[in-house]
Design a protein around this nucleic acid. Structure first.
Length: 416
RNA sequence: CGGGGCGUAGUAUACCGGCAGUACACAUGCUUUGGGAGCAUGUAGACUGGGUUCAAUUCCCAGCGCCCCGACCA
């Protein structure tokens, strides 16, 4: 991608009023555009990163047997009436403008919908277990959207639902999801804590959350410094400086961002929809369910909150919008430009995702400042200075020092 | 939903009861090119509605919007 052609560009100033790092840096960098409070457009640059996060999530969900599907975003009243959740004030109601239609809500979760769908296809214990997920926009009328991508009224979420013949089977799968979530967050270079929490409007039982420590977080957890056992403040009897009930270590309090959750739903939804199966001895039993969510935008925002410096974002390798930021400082010199172009074409031909700053009307300083703001992991500079030594200057965004590499070696490098 | 702050060009801001200014961005030309360049010229602006006033972007009221704190929350 040539930077001269990309839709959207960087801004020199922080957006007015924004205080959270993710809102400031993502808007300044041209990753996202705020349409309304908590409602965002992902610009091409930001969408590349969001898609990479989605790819990681899909890979890990598929690896534990999750099957991707796609449910309706419009959810008719009858579904939520079955569980009494039509009255939960979180929804945006959707009504037809021109005619009388049934009442709908913009989907803010899909337990009811999928449980109803499953009713047609689950008859026998042989149809179980299965797990299905989607990546879809959710609509929740937040009383207070805030902090950029961290709490939105419209956001893209991966929601996974699992269906089981027994409590034990659910628990086994729950552990698999837990392990998959750890992998997802590790691949995004996030240190997430598995935390005991309350169920809210989803389930009466305790649930689990993955929490990432960050000052911008709105959750508070108590976590053992030794074994990392953690509980959400909303249900915890632990206290700061207290003793860990698991290992005796010292408990500390942390502000955190909830990046994922796991809900053991039990039979709450299967009983509401009378979702039963015939077991091996011919008796009917209720299906046991679980649901598991990750907000993709919030995850992206969390990465920015935890991966930045005074100059901009520092993307983790796997979710960076591009792998290499190639910059030419040619001063209009046609020879330097053509050398840079060739390197760009070679990289593209080699399947390397590269953003090429080919802009003629920007000075070196501005290109560097933009590169720091955009946070692509490796910066490669071609200029008169480097070409005199038949070299290219390489600098990792995460490091201070640059080094020269021979162009011939550079083209052979592997960037995996 | 309670409290606070704020709404001026594409962005960030200044001033003001009487012609709205600056910087950046943008356009054109020339110069410039290793850390947000220079000169010249140009385009572009007061959230909405009501009130006070000879006159409102400015003062008052209401609405809407945005940010922050709290409540709530996945």
């Amino acid at each position: 991608m040539k930077q001269s052609q990309i839709f959207g560009h960087t801004l020199r100033e922080n957006p007015k009023d924004e205080t959270s790092a993710n809102a400031r840096l993502l808007e300044r960098g041209g990753f996202i555009y705020k349409n309304s409070a908590g409602v965002y457009t992902y610009l091409p640059l930001g969408w590349r990163t969001l898609e990479k996060i989605a790819k990681i999530i899909r890979e890990e969900m598929n690896a534990i047997g999750g099957q991707e599907m796609f449910m309706s975003a419009l959810v008719e009243k009858k579904y939520l009436d079955a569980t009494g959740r039509w009255d939960v004030p979180i929804g945006f109601e959707a009504k037809g403008k021109n005619e009388k239609t049934a009442d709908f809500v913009m989907g803010w979760t899909h337990e009811e919908v999928l449980t109803a769908v499953a009713g047609r296809y689950v008859n026998s214990y042989k149809d179980l277990p299965f797990a299905a997920y989607q990546v879809q926009t959710k609509f929740r009328n937040e009383p207070r959207a805030k902090s950029g991508l961290l709490r939105g009224r419209e956001f893209i979420m991966k929601d996974l639902y699992s269906f089981h013949a027994s409590e034990k089977d659910l628990n086994d799968f729950y552990e698999k999801v837990k392990a998959a979530y750890f992998k997802i967050f590790e691949r995004c270079d996030l240190k997430a804590f598995y935390t005991l929490a309350a169920g809210g409007v989803f389930t009466a039982s305790n649930t689990h959350e993955f929490q990432v420590a960050a000052p911008a977080g709105e959750d508070i957890i108590f976590i053992c410094g030794k074994c990392e056992y953690a509980e959400n403040k909303e249900i915890s009897k632990l206290k700061n400086g207290g003793e860990c009930p698991k290992c005796g270590g010292k408990v500390k309090m942390e502000k955190t961002i909830e990046v994922g959750n796991l809900f053991p739903l039990g039979t709450k939804y299967s009983s509401a929809f009378d979702l039963q199966f015939t077991n091996a001895i011919g008796k009917k039993e209720l299906v046991i369910m679980g649901s598991y969510g990750i907000g993709l935008g919030r995850l992206m925002g969390t990465v920015v909150e935890t991966h930045n410096d005074e100059k901009g974002i520092i993307w983790p390798e796997e979710i960076a919008p591009f792998k290499i930021h190639l910059i030419e400082i040619s001063g209009g010199d046609a020879d330097i430009k053509s050398r840079a172009e060739k390197i760009y074409r070679d990289l593209v031909a080699g399947g390397i995702e590269v953003l090429y700053d080919d802009r003629d009307d920007k000075t070196a300083g501005e290109k560097f400042a933009d590169a720091d703001l955009l946070g692509i992991p490796l910066r490669a500079v071609i200029s008169k200075k480097t070409l005199e030594r038949d070299s290219i200057e390489l600098k990792k965004r995460s490091e201070k020092e640059a080094k020269l590499a021979k162009i011939s070696d550079f083209s052979r490098l592997k960037f995996e």
